[in-house]
Write a protein that binds this DNA or RNA. Structure first.
Lengths: 209, 209
DNA sequence: CTTAGATTCTAATTTACGTTAGATTGAGTA
DNA sequence: TACTCAATCTAACGTAAATTAGAATCTAAG
């Protein structure tokens, strides 16, 4: 007797994954409305109609792509942070989190780009379905800064809410210029962490200008 | 005799502007492929076919919207910077530029959101047509930091290229959370300028953690 | 009031997308 | 070999989008 294949190891689950990958790629490039099932199918040598054996609709396919995206980011960030050991300093923590997020969105860019580029442009049902995952990920960052504030390592006058959003912006925007920049993910991560920690300004000495 | 109406003050140019405004709004909300001429027309009580009296195609209409967007940002930033007088300090200059950019993208958000959200998702011809304007605007910022470096007010080790991209990211990403944040444009501008100038980190005193 | 030109509408054309139903294929099993 | 089930394909259906041509309307000038 051969191995009994469980539901989750059927051959079709390989195809299912192929479809998701192809959909992520198209979604990241052309947006929800610019992604056509015909193209998704063609890119893996299938017919559009065949996709319906694996997914109920375009909407549910796209929904799955977007959910996968956020979980992927979360997983990678968690991994990077866990590498740090027990009681990491705030700068190290921030650097690790930024590195993780950037690795996720720049190296696994099909899925994560899909998520970032289509924020607010997908049907409401699809957008809402991904909200819990987004909230959970946001909380991770929120707590990171709450902890830092509690430990007194945040300068007076800094609004950590706006800080978090600024960092998110810098990171996510990198998806747009990364490929053309020649910079490595590590370089970008270090640079951004350093900027948000210490800024770019050299005070004093030459006075006015 | 009444005023001779020139080409640029014809009544139709008013309609033309209405169409552009409506298109910008839809484009910012639904993306290029999710924007339908029928919807654009309906939102100003017209029929889709009538748009073709003013524009040759959907593509050319959208192209004009995107070009307008970037010029709009540039104009507002220029205005804010010019308010500063002759020889402004780098911090003041940066604050003014950030404020201008944020005013543009948050207050005139239909056009500018259209530009930001559809980056890379429009047909290549449309994207290419807006490139000169984008380049010109980018140069403004490039020069801002070149000057600052020449004046020795940038900390050693800071890559102004990555700095500029980080600032762009923080600013442009604000389009996503601005409406729900309750923060004012001025607050956000001050916060971001302050962060990029001096960072968030309070060194020393409590040592390790 | 008439008329010419500008502007808009109506209705049709073309194209293509999402979706579906039924036929077809192919691999493993009795 | 014949059968079964999973997986895919084929060929359509219905809908809707961009575009177009010609008719209808509105405006301003004589």
């Amino acid at each position: 007797m051969t191995l009994k294949v469980s539901n989750t190891t059927k051959k079709s689950s390989v195809t299912r994954q192929l479809i998701l990958d192809a959909a992520a790629k198209k979604l990241s490039q052309h947006g929800y409305h610019g992604t056509y099932l015909k193209d998704v199918a063609e890119s893996i040598n299938m017919q559009a109609g065949s996709l319906y054996y694996h997914f109920n609709s375009k909407e549910s396919l796209m929904q799955e792509v977007l959910n996968k995206s956020i979980q992927l980011i979360q997983d990678i960030v968690n991994y990077e942070v866990e590498q740090l050991g027990e009681t990491p300093s705030f700068p190290d923590l921030l650097k690790a989190a930024i590195r993780g997020h950037l690795i996720a969105i720049l190296r696994h860019s099909d899925y994560t780009l899909a998520s970032i580029r289509n924020y607010g442009q997908v049907p409401v049902a699809v957008h809402k379905a991904a909200q819990p995952d987004r909230d959970a990920y946001e909380n991770f960052w929120r707590e990171l800064f709450e902890q830092a504030e509690k430990n007194g390592v945040i300068r007076a006058g800094v609004d950590t809410h706006l800080l978090r959003l600024a960092i998110f912006g810098s990171m996510n925007w990198a998806t747009i210029w990364y490929v053309d920049s020649g910079a490595s993910v590590e370089e970008i991560a270090d640079s951004q962490a350093e900027l948000f920690l210490n800024g770019c300004y050299k005070k004093g000495e030459q006075g006015g200008i």
